[in-house]
Design a protein around this nucleic acid. Sequence first.
DNA 1: TTCCGATGGCCAC
DNA 2: TGGCCCTCGGAAC
Length: 289
Amino acid sequence: MPEGNIIHRVARVHGRWLSGRRFTADSPQGRFGDGARVVSGRVLQAVEAHGKHLFYRFEGEVRLHVHLGLFGNIRHFRSEAPAPSPACRLRLSSPHATLHLSGPQACELLTAEDEAKLRARLGEDPLRAESSPERAREKLCRGRMPLALALLDQERLSGVGNILRAEALFLARLPPLLPAGALSEADFARLWDVLQRLLSDASRDGHIVTPGAPRVPECVAGRKRAERFCVYGREGQPCPRCGAKVRRRELAARGLFFCAECQGVDAVPRPRVAKKKARAVQEKRRGAR
DNA sequence: TTCCGATGGCCAC
DNA sequence: TGGCCCTCGGAAC
């Protein structure tokens, strides 16, 4: 479930338990065989997260870049590890810790230059200590792109996924379709603050729980996902703030959840991209029936 | 128990 | 714009 909070948590946990150890590496699935041979026998020195990207640095300037994408899964074992699944792209093994990576979108070795280029492309990450709200505002708040699309653009802001965008826009009471360039300084400050709080709490706790969600958790484990959020995945259910029905709209082929009452949605014109996409999706669905 | 859709983002066409 | 990666939670049965 990889939004920025999970990736930062993984980096922290792996940094704590895996760095300083010498690993043998292999690729049970076979697709990272050459890379695994390069990594094998080296000591892991550091693990870092930037947005949704993970960077593992091994001795000898060997750099491993991992992006989990939608299906990626990464597990670590501090005691005896189970046999890897046939889909396991990369296994890092040491006597005391093992890592299994499967289904990643990216698992590749990068030169220092490649890594610097990739990271230069990424927008400000609200979870990184050196992130600057001024730079973030500069990148996020330009042009006519709807705010909800701009938030998912990792070159503007990195680490925000579909859940966080819905919950952050809801908490900041912002219309998702407002052109990014029209966001006021005060509105941006509120949004940045909300994003930092949501991401850091979620990174600490291991899951996103939006303040004000329908049921405040005594125990989050076992609670249905939709109960942890105010609007995400709650189409047709009452807004926890005003009771109006939560709405869902397709925007660039992704579900966008919001409370029209709380977020003043009707005050903002629909962008053409949303109409076009929505029509295409409707037609596709009609065809499938 | 089975099946579907999605918390992403790159690439080929 | 569709395909790919091939996981996982939750709905449907």
